[in-house]
Nucleic acid binder design. Structure first.
Lengths: 267, 267
DNA sequence: AATTGTGAAGGACTTCACAGCA
DNA sequence: TGCTGTGAAGTCCTTCACAATT
């Protein structure tokens, strides 16, 4: 919806959250005055606002599955195969991919290697992103060592913490700087993303500093709503909320998705 | 790719994922033969299938915000106030709550204390849940100390790991048992939920054992799709996927959800 | 014969707007 | 007057089903 990005423009009171809770955005398909706003989007890229968020998450799953298939030396895969591996319908797989281009070969399916490249390019994981971790407490330290990040091209290059006894340590090969140096280091190393793993009360301040120092996206683990200027992307992960979702479905006696009597897909 | 394994109730090829990616469920509003299936649901509870998943996540946010308001000694709150604090519309707040009952007072708003109780009851966090953590690596250890869980009534009472050097430690007050004792301990202590923080390759096996030992829900942090029998709830958190969502929106030059300039909560 | 890409149909979720209550 | 609860309208997303392609 950010027709106007950059920092100033006041926005009405909607859509502040990066989580998957916000309404689905009035996907302005080619805004009327788009010829003016000079889309600096990379060629071939799609207006991210017009793509359902769930599609992006599924892309991520497709990618992982395709990487497995490649490792198993499978050359092609059909939408129904891929869907079945992940529990989605074949139509959904095709539709998701069709948001971004024509990657398939009728009669054949998708070539795994081609599709991996395509998805990585779409997700932006065909390049390396440099990342700063703010907060080197339990969670921050755990994420510094999380191999799932590194394996997709995300490089955490610096960590920050207030506590004197954590500063100047090297954790998982990443140096921990004092918070006072955040602005300088983020700017000098041209860091792209900040991961925020500090207490809720400190999160907004940290986010503000990160943004002032030039990051273009924030992954927030603190259980608060962050208010950010447009032009900065945010995704929030709230662990307590996830556990509460689980609690809800158990407390209300649901087996999330009670299976129907198996319409036997022979597989 | 291990489609349905173990455990009797064979599941078809749909809805395997606990994340928010699965299609929105054929919300069977009062199944035709529901008089037969003897809903053992607690009185006042709602069919969890008929409630959009996003509503549950928002409930969780409302709860946190209300707890803040209570701490600030605010007695009542209107739907528009609450919405504004979190970035949702007033109508959304009211609709969400109306799924579960009539909690508001026309002309007044919602009494914070009442609403807190109501939501806790809905989410099932009015009781204490006992939880087992499987995997005491970086992530597992971090989650053992995560205060956001304890503060909502979640108690991690045991941890499990394979590595000999981790076993019999006590981390954050939680004893680490060898994996061999998982079944016994989970059964004996009547543990309700399992948190799975093991490598992807091990996750399905762990989940199967947890379920066989009687847990009713699983929160999965491993980057794989788990196949579970119906009757067990699952929620998955995939950290790499979240980062990839961020990467996508930055790579395609979007300001995901531009925030408003803080609707000033005097605070 | 198999499989994609896609308009059209179908659902699910959100927003609107207002009747009704305090 | 202020605010809730809710049918109705609207929007977004998924599923269907089939023409097009190899």
């Amino acid at each position: 919806m950010s027709i106007w990005l950059a920092f100033s423009p006041i926005r009405p009171y909607k859509y502040p959250r990066g989580g998957s809770l916000a309404p689905a955005a009035e996907s302005h398909r080619l805004a009327p005055n788009d010829f003016l706003s000079s889309p600096k989007r990379k060629p071939g890229a799609v207006d991210p606002e017009s793509v359902p968020k769930a599609v992006v998450s599924r892309l991520s799953l497709y990618l992982r599955e395709l990487q497995h298939l490649l490792r198993d030396e499978q050359a092609t895969v059909s939408s129904s195969q891929l869907g079945q591996l992940l529990g989605f319908s074949d139509a959904q797989v095709r539709k998701d991919l069709a948001y971004f281009g024509h990657f398939g070969h009728p009669g054949i399916g998708y070539r795994c290697d081609e599709l991996v490249s395509a998805i990585r390019s779409i997700l932006g994981t065909d390049r390396e992103w440099t990342i700063a971790m703010v907060g080197a407490g339990n969670l921050g330290r755990a994420l510094l060592g999380y191999r799932g990040f590194a394996s997709q091209g995300f490089r955490i290059v610096a960590a920050f913490d207030e506590a004197a006894d954590r500063v100047h340590q090297t954790i998982e090969g990443v140096e921990v700087y004092p918070m006072t140096r955040l602005d300088e280091v983020v700017r000098d190393r041209a860091i792209s993303f900040g991961l925020v793993a500090v207490p809720a009360a400190a999160a907004q301040g940290v986010a503000d500093r990160l943004i002032a120092s030039g990051v273009s996206g924030i992954l927030n683990f603190a259980p608060v709503m962050l208010n950010l200027p447009s032009g900065v992307s945010i995704v929030s992960v709230d662990l307590a909320t996830e556990l509460e979702r689980l609690s809800f479905s158990v407390a209300n006696r649901g087996g999330e998705k009670p299976a129907e009597p198996a319409p036997e897909k022979p597989l």
